[in-house]
Design a protein around this nucleic acid. Structure first.
Length: 572
RNA sequence: GGGCCUGUAGCUCAAUUGGUUAGAGCAGAGCGCUCAUAACGCUUUGGUUGGGGGUUCGAGUCCCUCCGGGCCUACCA
């Protein structure tokens, strides 16, 4: 038994997440967490909402609510949706928590003590009408290069030229449209990542088994141009973790907050404390996951995220941890994902394009989405969601291969032997052959799960489901029954046990269907089938069961067409 | 502009890291079965691996070049 710490990239508080967000971090993380728990490991699986930053303030303003209230409401919305998708977090925390506030300030203090914080005076654009400093991309104007009139302060989307806000002709606030802007000086804290470059490089270079997507992004940031740059870790905003040096005030920083990307990863740690605090347990119970001086030495820490998050997890957050000089746990493996596209374009939160988590659950149960998304996870390159592919995959894999197997064997048994496991007959060479194939397939499946090869694991699981149909076809109990009912009983006894076995091994992918299968087989036995032959005897002769309702109904062409047109435009 | 990823059957993806005849699923075709959600099983059609050049005994894999798709480029997160 091992101890495994799993974190999913924390979703931003601003709005409901789409299926691309889900498949890029939370869902595969959940798959891994469920699997590792079932294999008898001690797992701590953490996630939270990422609540600070400019977009949260603007979203709250649009909603006409104080930002704290807005975030609290959106946290509940996201929590309910993550429950709806069966995401089995041990704790779904908040980056705005007291725990994260204190820990973020603690890290900043330690970094300052280590000489890794520098104060820098810089010039930024201030908008009088908005009453705030504007990040570069919140300033719009005419591009001096191509004349495009909606160029942003960081880059012109039309000619792709990199810009500085002061380059723009007739700059205006992207928030209010106001042109009453001025350049002001403001003082900020920088994390001296340059000083940590050698440590970070050695650490990244030691990670030879990480996905190439992960290490290539990290190495680019380490080596490109002048190498890793120092990073500003404070902002002139109201909403965020107030800048303090540990518990002490930080002179000159009174009205500032930490940059959201400084405090967000620290929430991975603070979330563990939220978890134990919520249960009234002592700090030692979370520190044994995070402090290598307090028992976390034997923890394997795995992070899941989309590719856009990689620089912060491979460099910035490790810089915070290493720079602190304290014995915090560093990540052991980073599983990163590409993007899921939607019908020929991108999913987009800002444009409301695609299918969002709440909408998905309104039209179909979570298991349909979990299965399709995981079996098509964008591991090696961006992948694409289409309604046709979704319909055929779900119907074929879930309804025809798995669902129909459960249906055909339970109904056959009911009609010939009644709703209990028949006792007569004995297994022979056919069963030996099937068990050998199951053992072989199971070994492949578990190997892919251990390696976090999500799509390959799904393919191996499906292949295991197919074995059941092949077995029934070749053993043909409906024919055998006419001449040798006892032999048919033996076949049925095995096949009914196969339903339970499938429920167990499929649970990480489709937990709800798995629970219904177990329930109809009238058992709570979720023991992993390390010994296949023994596992196929878990339901003994005479054990009562009930024919379940249709496990997965099919998606009709009418439904598909309806959804296709319904989700073709923008979300309102 | 720079960096990285990517292009394999009609579709979605593999290919043990340079090694026999490039494999699966879906879709298509044929046959079988009749327990089952018009379900299942078996067989089968289909590829000049984006184009061109090179290295090698041997290239989907390495190099060069051209074409297409995508991501990142540090103040969105």
């Amino acid at each position: 038994m091992s101890r495994i710490l799993i974190t999913s990239a924390i979703p931003y508080i601003n709005g409901i997440k789409h299926l691309g967000n889900l498949v890029g971090s939370q869902l595969p993380a959940d798959l891994y967490a469920r699997y590792m728990r079932m294999r008898g490991n001690e797992v701590l699986f953490l996630c939270a909402t990422d609540e600070h930053g400019t977009p949260a303030e603007l979203a709250a303003a649009r909603a006409g609510k104080p930002v704290a209230e807005y975030c609290a409401e959106m946290w509940q919305v996201q929590k309910d949706l993550s429950d709806g998708f069966g995401l089995s977090f041990d704790k779904f925390g908040r980056s705005s928590s007291e725990q994260n506030r204190a820990l973020t300030q603690h890290f900043a203090g330690k970094l300052a003590d280590a000489g890794l914080i520098e104060e820098v005076v810089e010039s930024q654009v201030y908008s009088h009408a908005d009453g705030r400093f504007l990040p570069d991309r919140y300033i719009e104007g005419t591009c001096p290069n191509c004349g495009y009139d909606k160029a942003r302060g960081d880059q012109c989307e039309n000619c792709t030229k990199q810009l500085d806000p002061t380059d723009l002709i007739e700059p205006r606030s992207a928030i209010s449209g106001s042109t009453d802007l001025e350049v002001r000086e403001t003082r900020h804290l920088y994390l001296k990542q340059r000083s940590l470059r050698a440590d970070l490089k050695a650490w990244i270079d030691s990670k030879t088994d990480w996905p190439i997507l992960t290490t290539s992004i990290a190495k680019k940031w380490l080596n490109d141009g002048d190498g890793l740059q120092d990073r500003g870790i404070t902002r002139d905003l109201d909403w965020g973790v107030p800048v303090k040096r540990g518990a002490d005030p930080w002179p000159g920083m009174e009205d500032k907050v930490f940059y959201v990307w400084f405090d967000a990863p620290i929430e991975y740690i603070a979330c563990a404390k939220e978890w134990t605090d919520g249960m009234g347990r002592p700090d030692a119970d979370w520190e044994r996951w995070w402090r290598t001086d307090k028992g976390a030495d034997d923890v394997k820490y795995v992070q899941f995220m989309g590719k856009d998050n990689v620089p912060f997890h491979t460099l910035s957050f490790p810089a915070t941890i290493i720079g602190s000089g304290e014995p915090w746990k560093l990540v052991d493996y980073i599983k990163s994902f590409n993007y899921l596209n939607y019908d020929g374009g991108q999913f987009s939160t800002s444009q409301g394009r695609g299918v969002f988590m709440d909408q998905a659950l309104e039209i179909l149960p979570a298991d349909y989405w979990r299965w399709w998304l995981l079996s098509h996870a964008p591991e090696n390159s961006d992948s694409e969601f289409t309604w046709e592919n979704f319909q055929t995959s779900a119907n074929k894999d879930l309804a025809d291969v798995l669902g129909n197997f459960v249906s055909r064997i339970t109904k056959f048994c009911r009609s010939k032997f009644g709703e209990e496991v028949p006792s007569a007959g004995a297994w022979g060479p056919d069963e030996d052959a099937l068990i050998a194939r199951l053992e072989e397939g199971l070994a492949k499946y578990t190997a892919q799960m251990e390696a976090i090869e999500v799509r390959k694991a799904a393919a191996e699981l499906r292949a295991l489901w197919v074995l059941g149909n092949e077995y029934l076809q070749s053993s043909a109990p409906w024919t055998v029954f006419k001449e040798d009912p006892d032999r048919a009983a033996a076949i049925v006894r095995l096949a009914l046990n196969l339903v339970r076995l499938y429920a167990v091994i499929s649970a990480p992918f489709i937990p709800d269907a798995s629970a219904r299968m177990l329930s109809s087989m009238n058992t709570l036995d979720m023991e992993w089938p390390d010994d296949v032959r023994a596992a196929l005897g878990a339901l003994p002769a005479g054990h009562a069961f009930a024919v379940p309702d249709v496990l997965f109904r099919k998606i009709t062409d009418d439904e598909r067409e309806d959804w296709q047109s319904r989700f073709s435009g923008r979300r309102t």
